[in-house]
């Protein structure tokens, strides 16, 4: 086992309470976010009830003014609720899930939207079979997602019941796996589009489509990057917009769009190494 020490390429400086927060690089912020996640990862809910954006702002109080300006821009434009996902490497998929259900819930016709979503999932199935996943296995992972979607027919859930359902570990993990498999199947069946972008997140060297999917998409706990986000949004035909809270100097904020242009795309909040969901408060809208 001693042969596995990777060794850090760049010597990491010690970051403590004396460090000027404005000097943190994105990489350092990512490392801090990750280690934060590891410490209390199991004590945090898989997905939280919404917190006001000001809670996130407080975390950056002594931090980068660039990030603060972006948070203030979100606030000023009505993006005031953050649904936090646990920082365990599955945060993109969990964020996608809650955003997907919130979009249905707050649409003018929740039943119709739930049926459309159900259809979209069904349309992703042939690709999964085509790339050789065992239907017995992936159907088991898809079932909780489909049950929740079918649930809109009987009784429209509330934000509260949705959160409760998605905080159940087994259900939430099944949905994460289902979305990972949908993502993988889409990348594998669209190799020509994706292959130039399939790089190892640690070495930045190109990976084969099979290696990328086996190592970076299918296993739980592996962070999603642009390729995975693009693939999932295309596969389920659902636009995703991500607000980047990084330190790049831009007007307003960087919104990066993925997938098809859909009405009311899912809106995620990205901080280096982590995804949450950001929404406008629907009660006030």
């Amino acid at each position: 086992m001693s042969d596995h020490d990777g060794g850090d390429a760049d010597p990491a400086r010690v970051i403590d309470e004396h460090t000027d927060m404005t000097t943190l690089t994105d990489q350092e912020i990512m490392r801090l976010t990750e280690s934060m996640g590891q410490e209390d990862v199991t004590s945090r809910p898989l997905i939280s009830a919404p917190v006001p954006l000001s809670v996130i702002r407080d975390e950056y109080k002594n931090g980068s003014s660039t990030v603060l300006k972006k948070i203030d821009w979100l606030q000023a434009n009505g993006w005031d609720q953050v649904w936090r996902a646990r920082g365990d490497g599955d945060c993109f998929y969990r964020s996608f899930t809650i955003a997907y259900f919130l979009r249905i819930l707050h649409s003018s016709e929740p039943q119709l939207q739930a049926n459309l979503a159900f259809d979209a999932v069904q349309r992703a199935l042939p690709a999964m079979q085509q790339v050789g996943f065992d239907p017995d296995l992936y159907e088991e992972f898809l079932e909780p997602l489909l049950v929740l979607l079918r649930g809109f027919d009987a009784d429209t859930p509330t934000e509260w019941t949705l959160i409760q359902q998605l905080q159940d570990a087994e259900r939430s993990n099944c949905i994460v796996v289902a979305l990972r498999l949908v993502t993988s199947a889409y990348i594998r069946t669209h190799e020509d589009v994706f292959s130039p972008f399939l790089l190892s997140p640690t070495t930045f060297l190109p990976l084969t489509t099979d290696d990328f999917c086996r190592q970076e998409v299918e296993p739980c706990g592996k962070e999603a990057d642009h390729a995975q986000i693009m693939a999932l949004s295309e596969a389920l035909h659902m636009g995703v917009r991500i607000a980047y809270l990084d330190r790049s100097e831009v007007q307003d904020i960087n919104w990066v769009s993925f997938g098809p242009e859909t009405e009311d795309p899912l809106t995620l909040l990205y901080r280096p190494g982590h995804y949450d969901v950001v929404t406008k408060d629907h009660l006030l809208a």
Partner: peptide
């Protein structure tokens, strides 16, 4: 690798 971080729930 699949016994460690490349494990995926579709493996049996």
């Amino acid at each position: 690798d699949i016994l460690k971080d490349a494990w995926s729930p579709v493996l049996t």
